[in-house]
Nucleic acid binder design. Structure first.
Lengths: 174, 174
DNA sequence: TATTGTTATACTCTATAACTATA
DNA sequence: TATAGTTATAGAGTATAACAATA
């Protein structure tokens, strides 16, 4: 049951004329899903030349800004299981974006680094993503300024509800 | 050696201390992804008794409000391919939520309907989802009022960008 | 004993393509 | 020809469980 992401490649979620959406139209969660769906498709359009999903883009940025990052820590930052971080890293290395290097001090762990080619390719990709994002914020005008703050707060609030003591069987803290 | 229990809550996209997120923290799209991740997990917590994903919940509402809905139209409303709508419908019927009935006027298509049991179960499920959503909006206070409007606008704007001809930026009414 | 990463496996979601029946 | 639904298959994405090497 642990599906934390919305399904990634999707078609457009347009409101269909003549269909009654009932309570869905009133739900914050449904509005969020619609927005994410549209943004996802737009991200793909804006970065088609690189063939990198939003998740993989995030991984590349994290490795670039944290050279030597452990595989497991990368997964933790992205909400992935260890095995998921492995698959993700496998893909990044197979595509020549990143590489595993030995990590001084702990022979169990890898240190992740971008390859020279990965660094070169990431620069224009980051610029394309930033431009794509900025275009949306610009189109939103004043709303754009408050929307991001609202989303960050929403993430915090939803997490707080999920992890409140009464809501879920408590897990041990490590 | 191996632990049968995982002590860490997995799936949460929490900011990891000591990790530099670089430009990700500044992106509207990344804030959206974090919020959606948190909301998804919270939805599961709030509706655990029904074992229905957000997508399946949306399908149930659409069928309830549009009795006799065609399978393909359901998929269109949800951004799914026909084959995806088929799998979704298969699940709903297998679980006893919905059923396919012959559709008068077109022998090719099914009309989808909730079963009596499905109707009975949907009522409290809708209430639980509404309560879950309302709790979030309440916790957000004033921001909650504007956030939903901002998300709806964002979905519109991103869709417009995606479907704009060529790379020409789409003019947008503010 | 706990961790880091790996291997193997399975399940979900989604897509494409070819097919049948009907329009 | 076009549409509605189905079947078969493939590919991400993520999960669990068992394992080896290391701490």
């Amino acid at each position: 049951m642990n599906k934390t992401d919305s399904p990634e490649p999707e078609g457009l979620m347009l409101p269909v004329p003549g269909v009654d959406y009932g309570p869905l139209d009133g739900l914050l969660g449904y509005a969020l899903r619609r927005a994410q769906n549209a943004l996802y498709l737009d991200f793909y359009r804006a970065t088609a030349a690189w063939d990198v999903s939003p998740q993989r883009f995030a991984a590349l940025v994290l490795i670039a800004r944290n050279p030597g990052l452990r595989q497991g820590l990368l997964g933790q930052a992205m909400g992935l299981h260890r095995s998921g971080a492995l698959r993700l890293t496998d893909w990044l290395t197979a595509q020549g974006w990143a590489e595993r290097r030995d990590r001084p001090g702990d022979a169990r762990a890898w240190g992740l680094h971008l390859t020279p080619a990965g660094k070169r390719r990431l620069t224009p990709l980051e610029a394309a993503v930033a431009a794509h994002d900025a275009a949306l914020v610009t189109a939103l005008g004043e709303q754009g300024l408050t929307l991001k703050a609202g989303l960050e707060r929403l993430a915090w609030v939803a997490t707080a509800q999920s992890t409140a003591p009464d809501n879920e069987p408590r897990r041990q803290k490590t």
